[in-house]
Write a protein that binds this DNA or RNA. Sequence first.
DNA 1: GATGAATGAGCTTTCATTCAT
DNA 2: AATGAATGAAAGCTCATTCAT
Lengths: 217, 217, 217, 217
Amino acid sequence: MKLHPLSESSEKPQGRRDKRQLILDAAVRVFARMGYHGARVSDIAREAGIAYGLVYHYFRNKEEILGTIFEDRWARFLDAVENVACSRTSTREKLTSIAALILGGYRVQPDWVKVLVLEIQRSSRFAEPGQIRAVGRLFQSVERILREGQEQGALRDGFDPDVASQLFIGGLEIAVTARVLGVTRAGDGESEDEYCARVARTVVDLFFDGVRAGGVA
Amino acid sequence: MKLHPLSESSEKPQGRRDKRQLILDAAVRVFARMGYHGARVSDIAREAGIAYGLVYHYFRNKEEILGTIFEDRWARFLDAVENVACSRTSTREKLTSIAALILGGYRVQPDWVKVLVLEIQRSSRFAEPGQIRAVGRLFQSVERILREGQEQGALRDGFDPDVASQLFIGGLEIAVTARVLGVTRAGDGESEDEYCARVARTVVDLFFDGVRAGGVA
Amino acid sequence: MKLHPLSESSEKPQGRRDKRQLILDAAVRVFARMGYHGARVSDIAREAGIAYGLVYHYFRNKEEILGTIFEDRWARFLDAVENVACSRTSTREKLTSIAALILGGYRVQPDWVKVLVLEIQRSSRFAEPGQIRAVGRLFQSVERILREGQEQGALRDGFDPDVASQLFIGGLEIAVTARVLGVTRAGDGESEDEYCARVARTVVDLFFDGVRAGGVA
Amino acid sequence: MKLHPLSESSEKPQGRRDKRQLILDAAVRVFARMGYHGARVSDIAREAGIAYGLVYHYFRNKEEILGTIFEDRWARFLDAVENVACSRTSTREKLTSIAALILGGYRVQPDWVKVLVLEIQRSSRFAEPGQIRAVGRLFQSVERILREGQEQGALRDGFDPDVASQLFIGGLEIAVTARVLGVTRAGDGESEDEYCARVARTVVDLFFDGVRAGGVA
DNA sequence: GATGAATGAGCTTTCATTCAT
DNA sequence: AATGAATGAAAGCTCATTCAT
């Protein structure tokens, strides 16, 4: 059983890079609670238990904190996605794994996903080429899986992998957002794990088989 | 040929509500250009050609402007969606119409959609019950179409209409966002209209038939 | 009897430009008391009896206040100097008048001269071309007087008017600085007026006759 | 041929006082480049190639650095001036030597003189009794030379040596400041040395003979 | 002596909002 | 209705100074 790539290591940090990480972790919690614009640098410092000015020792300004939060963990997340894309399993299993990664993120790091969905995605940074490109890599990974599926004959020809990747990821993003906003939740007697697995399966099923009656011969 | 519900009426406004509308229109342009937080009330006033104190005659505060922008046009948009949902056409046509509505919004009102996607969606207002409910009505309309499709036998049973509506709308939302961010664009020699129609068709096709090889008998 | 050009008009300001002037006058007092760097914008606002932010309604920043203080009054001072330079009196009287203008400034506007001598002169602005040029005009006026004196035969040939203007003004500047710093002061039973007149006369005498014994035939 | 008293000794410093001197020299360069207020302690430390905490081992605070810069070299300069004052030469030669000392400082130590003229002179320290007294000693030396000249009959009676010393030094100060600010410079084909000597001679000539026509019998 | 992480008071500046006219 | 001067809370950021190592 593998850990989710966003799950935090539990080691107590004590070296020199630690204060920096302390600040990042505190910032994630504070941004999740108050939003990026609502959070003051002093809030982050207090949450991290350090002095105000130290934040500026490690980061040029507040925005760099948000940017770093994104870059650090998004890279880890992308690695996991790309590992899946390269793995030697069926197309369906690959897409199911990716769906689980996306949906599971919220279970493992609700604050971080909240910040990603509500703050980073809509910060001015998000519109920057670098960030768009980073996000684009997720789409490209999925596109590649779809294209390989077509080549192997597992997926039908005749659909645009580009648009299809948007449909797939867009559906999952809405599901995560709905979860973050509290619109949907796990059913009674259903664990978070089970909930994620169920939704991932449902999305992949839909994505594979479509909604049309008689679609499956 | 029907107008898109977001297309602006061309009547020159001249009554008393006019200044109010002037402010709203100016705000849409300014928010699109500078973002909600980057826009000052004075920027909106200058764009509208009025004194900035006057803004406070018509709106309690800056946030109310954003809220009003959303409510005004979202209501019009929802009406159009619900009209489609009630219309006496096939499920496929209904979904295609809705896809065209969503995708066409950017063509008709790029600034407004930009503000909706980049600002409103991530404002704290968006997390308010009222706004979530308003957005929820879009999902419910689609859900209803899907459920009716299942009842009529046009769509297969065995998928959750709730999750399916998320997949459908999520896919479209990503497509619109990609358009807003300039990641995708119309192909060479393709008009905006044709582009929208093509993407709408592709999404509906995928949503109907899935990606699985042999899915279509 | 003419007023010194730096003496303030006594009219109570009440129009719209007044707040601006109120701020400038307050700033002169505060800068004189605490120095430019020691003065906070809030000190100026309090001294002027206005709200903090209003300062930024009239001035871009603190430095612009200092610059405006200099420009406003230095222009008035230069006018007076240039009037003297153009007047139809003897060279000696012209130089005596200018000496009196320079020395009298401190009597009439001690705060302003203090700010000029201690703050403006050494601010980074002072090293700016515009400001150097403005100060240069004082030297040029004196130079012109000296050159005309040479042409008219009132002054001997054989000295460089450029260096001579530096000697003349430099001497007066030191005298003023010494006064500002409290190193020198009026003698017992001597009014400020008399003190200025006496020093002005002494400087001009020295400048005219030199220190050499037998210099006067 | 004697060295200018401000010229730096060329010995490589290697004892314990060295770091201290390293800091002072670095500070002179940094203050000259960025101004006292514009220079951060860390800038000085970087220029000196040391950790910036170390600065506080050698100096109580930033201001003490400025003060030390002044005191160290001013003392050396004053010694030179007082040597001249005591020397057994003519009054004219004494004043010419002092003029050369003042003017030559910029040639030998442009950074230091820049800091003296632009920073120290206008720092709050400068208004402190100790510093005023130190500067006053320069005036007193000149005054003493003038008084002795009067007693010996080389200079005429009937002028106030106090005001005369201000005229003399003030003129030189302006000349140096103009040099520092780049307003004046050596003529074509004139070395810095020659330039200094020429201006020194001109100032002394003027100071001795005055500007009046017929002043020299 | 030497380091540089840590501190935090205090600054300038911004700008939503109020209000007298 | 309309103006824009006036308000002042609040925020980001700087940097001299301290201190543990």
